[in-house]
Design a protein around this nucleic acid. Structure first.
Length: 511
RNA sequence: GGCGCCGUACCCAAGUGGCUAAGGGAGCAGUCUGCAAAACUGCGAUUCAGCGGUUCGAACCCGCUCGGCGCCUCCA
C-alpha cells in the first residue's frame, strides 16, 4: 500500500507522490530562540523526526530543513530584560534546543538555516515583491498587500471578508488593508538592523520561512510542516508571498501537528501551563536515555494530528508499556534455546503479519498509535512462542525485527541490560558474586548514576545499607533460614524497598 | 461574532459504512515462586455524548442538541 497523508490544504488524505521520484523535500517551522522549549515544541520536532525517519525507512532520500527564528521582538525584549546582547539570547537558547533534541533522540535535520544568516535572500525577495507591486513601503516598513493575492485564505479556509468582520487586530491606518502584514520592519535607533533599500530594519516573521525554504528547496517542494497554530496567519502568509514571488506552487503537502494540552487546554507560554523539556528531564528519576525514550513513546501513542493531554500519569504509563517490550527483548536473551521446535515456523507467520500491519499503519498518515498496538500484539505472540521454544537463530531474528521496526519510531534500540524495569530507579546486586552477575550490576548501576542527584537526595537509606541487608538475607536463604530472610524482607519493605529474587540467584531491588 | 476540531470501557487510545469495537495503563483471577516480586496467561464496552434521519446495514454519512477545545494577536 502506498503512503497516504492528510494534507491540511485540501483537508483530505492524499496519495503521497513527491515531485521527484524517491526524493522528498521537507520544510518545518522550528522555534523562536528566546526561551527554553516546552513539551509542545518537543512534540512538533518529534512528529517530523518520525515522519522523516519513516520516509527514509521507506527508501526516500529526504532533504529536511528546519529553521531557527533568531531575530524577533521577543528576543529583543528578552535581551533588554536581562541586559545582555540579543545575540547572547539566541546563542543560549539554540544551545538549549540542541541539548533537548539530543535527549529526545531527534536526528538533526539536513539543513538548519537561521534568519540572520539569510538577510540578503530576504531583502532580495522583498524587493522582488515590491517590484511586482504586491508589496509597498510605508515609512521604512514594507507590507504585503493581501488583496493582490486572489487565493489568500485558501490554506486556512478563510476569506478576507470574514477575517475583517472578526478582526481583533488594531487597525494600522498606514496599511492599505488591515490584513496586510509586515515583510520588513524598520529599526528604532536602539534596535538591531540591517541595511536595506527601505533603510535599516529587520525581517518580518513570515518572510524568513519563505526565503529560506525557496533558497534551500526551490520554489516548489513536497512537504511543509509545523504546529497547527501556524496555519493562520503564518503559513497562509508564507503561501501568499511565496506564490506571488515565484509565480509557482509553493508547498504541495501541508502537515500540521496537534497541541500538547494540560487539563485539555493548550500548553502555552501565555497561559503559563507549560512544562519545559529541561524540567521534565531534571525531575525524572530515570536516566536521560530512558526518559527520552518514554517521552517518545508517550508522544507517539496519540496520532500526530490530535491534541495530546499531558499528566503525571502519562509518562509512567508509557514507561510500563516500554517495560513490557524491553522485557521481551531481555527474555529473548535469557530463555533456554530449543533448536528444533514448533515456534520457529510460526515465527515466520507472526513476523509477516506484523510487518504488513506496521507498513499499512505507517502508510496511513503515520498512524503511530496503531503501530504501537501492533508491537504489543507481537509481544504477546512472541511470548507464547517462547513457551513453545525458539531456536537461537529465530530469537536473533526476532530481536533484529524489533530493532528494525523500532528504528523509524526511535524506540527499542537499547540493550535491555540498560533498561531499568522498576517504576522508580532500580539497582541490582549479585547474590553469588559471579562474573556474569557483576557485569549486570555495572549495567544497572550506570542507569542509576545518570538518573540524577534528585533521586539520591530523596532516599532515606543508602544503597550500601540495602545491599548489605540483601547479602545477609541471601546467606540466610542459602541455609534455608527463611524466617530470618523474611524478617529482612519486611525490614526493607518498611523502607519502601521491594526485592525481586531472580532465577539466576541474584536479587534485584527497587524503591 | 466568523471559521474549525473533538466527545469510543475506570484512565489513555486505534477504528470513520458490513468480518469477534485494536492496543496500553489500572483492576481482578490463574501459572510460577520457600514467601514475595517480576514475568506470562486469562477476564472487561451487546456498545461508541444524546436525539432524530439516510441505508438491507452506522461508532463511522446527514441534521439538531449538549459538553470540551482551538484559530481569528505572538505561539509548535
Amino acid at each position: 500500500m502506498p503512503l497516504t497523508l492528510y494534507n491540511s490544504r485540501t483537508k483530505k488524505k492524499e496519495l503521497f507522490l513527491p515531485l521527484t521520484p524517491n526524493q522528498v523535500k521537507m520544510y518545518v517551522c522550528g522555534v523562536t530562540v528566546y526561551d527554553e522549549c516546552h513539551l509542545g515544541h518537543a512534540r512538533s520536532a518529534l512528529v517530523f523526526d518520525t515522519i522523516r525517519r519513516y520516509l527514509e525507512y521507506s527508501g526516500y532520500q529526504v532533504t529536511y530543513v528546519r529553521n531557527f527564528t533568531d531575530v524577533d521582538d521577543k528576543i529583543l525584549q528578552r535581551a533588554q530584560n536581562e541586559g545582555i546582547p540579543w545575540t547572547k539570547v539566541t546563542e543560549k537558547y539554540i544551545e538549549a534546543f540542541y541539548r533537548d533534541m539530543g535527549r529526545l533522540g531527534i536526528i538533526p535535520p539536513t539543513i538548519e538555516p537561521r534568519a540572520t544568516h539569510h538577510i540578503q535572500d530576504i531583502v532580495d525577495m522583498i524587493a522582488g515583491l515590491v517590484e511586482k507591486h504586491v508589496a509597498y513601503e510605508v515609512e521604512g516598513d514594507v507590507y504585503f498587500e493581501v488583496r493582490k493575492f486572489s487565493q489568500y485564505g485558501q490554506l486556512s479556509g478563510r476569506n478576507l471578508e470574514e477575517l475583517l468582520a472578526g478582526a481583533r487586530v488594531e487597525v494600522d491606518h498606514r496599511k492599505k488593508d488591515p490584513m496586510d502584514f509586515a515583510l520588513w520592519k524598520s529599526a528604532k535607533p536602539d534596535e538591531p538592523g540591517w541595511e536595506s533599500p527601505w533603510g535599516k530594519g529587520r525581517p518580518g516573521w513570515h518572510i524568513e520561512c519563505s526565503a529560506m525554504s525557496i533558497k534551500h528547496l526551490g520554489p516548489t517542494f513536497d512537504i511543509h510542516g509545523g504546529g497547527k497554530d501556524l496555519i493562520f496567519p503564518h503559513h497562509e502568509n508564507e503561501v501568499a508571498q511565496s506564490c506571488a514571488y515565484t509565480g509557482k506552487e509553493f508547498a504541495r503537502y501541508w502537515i500540521h501537528n496537534g497541541f500538547v494540552t494540560i487539563d485539555q487546554e493548550k500548553m502555552s507560554k501565555s497561559l503559563g501551563n507549560f512544562f519545559t523539556i529541561r524540567e521534565i528531564f531534571e525531575k525524572s528519576s530515570y536516566s536521560e536515555i530512558v526518559t527520552g525514550e518514554c517521552l517518545r513513546y508517550y508522544l507517539l501513542s496519540t496520532h500526530y494530528r490530535s491534541d495530546i493531554n499531558f499528566s503525571d500519569q502519562s509518562i509512567s504509563e508509557a514507561k510500563s508499556a516500554m517495560d513490557s517490550i524491553y522485557g521481551l527483548i531481555r527474555r529473548l536473551e535469557e530463555f533456554d534455546t530449543q533448536e528444533d521446535s514448533q515456534g520457529n515456523e510460526e515465527w515466520e507467520h507472526v513476523s509477516n503479519h506484523f510487518a504488513k500491519k506496521f507498513q499499512e499503519s505507517m502508510d496511513d498518515d503515520f498512524n503511530t498509535p496503531k503501530v504501537l498496538g501492533a508491537f504489543h500484539e507481537l509481544r504477546g505472540k512472541i511470548n507464547k512462542l517462547l513457551g513453545k521454544g525458539l531456536s537461537s537463530q529465530a530469537k536473533q531474528k526476532v530481536k533484529e525485527a524489533l530493532k528494525k521496526f523500532g528504528e523509524p519510531l526511535g524506540l527499542f534500540q537499547l540493550n535491555p541490560k540498560e533498561w531499568p524495569f522498576a517504576a522508580y530507579g532500580s539497582a541490582m546486586i549479585s547474590g553469588g558474586g559471579s562474573l556474569k552477575a557483576e557485569g549486570k550490576k555495572t549495567a544497572y548501576g550506570s542507569a542509576i548514576i545518570s538518573g540524577g542527584g534528585s533521586v539520591e537526595t530523596s532516599r532515606s537509606v543508602s544503597s550500601d545499607w540495602i545491599e548489605e541487608k540483601i547479602r545477609l538475607r541471601n546467606d540466610a536463604r542459602a541455609q534455608k533460614d527463611f524466617s530470618t530472610a523474611d524478617t529482612i524482607r519486611k525490614e526493607l519493605a518498611e523502607q519502601g524497598i521491594i526485592l525481586e529474587d531472580r532465577p539466576d540467584g541474584t536479587t534485584r531491588w527497587k524503591r
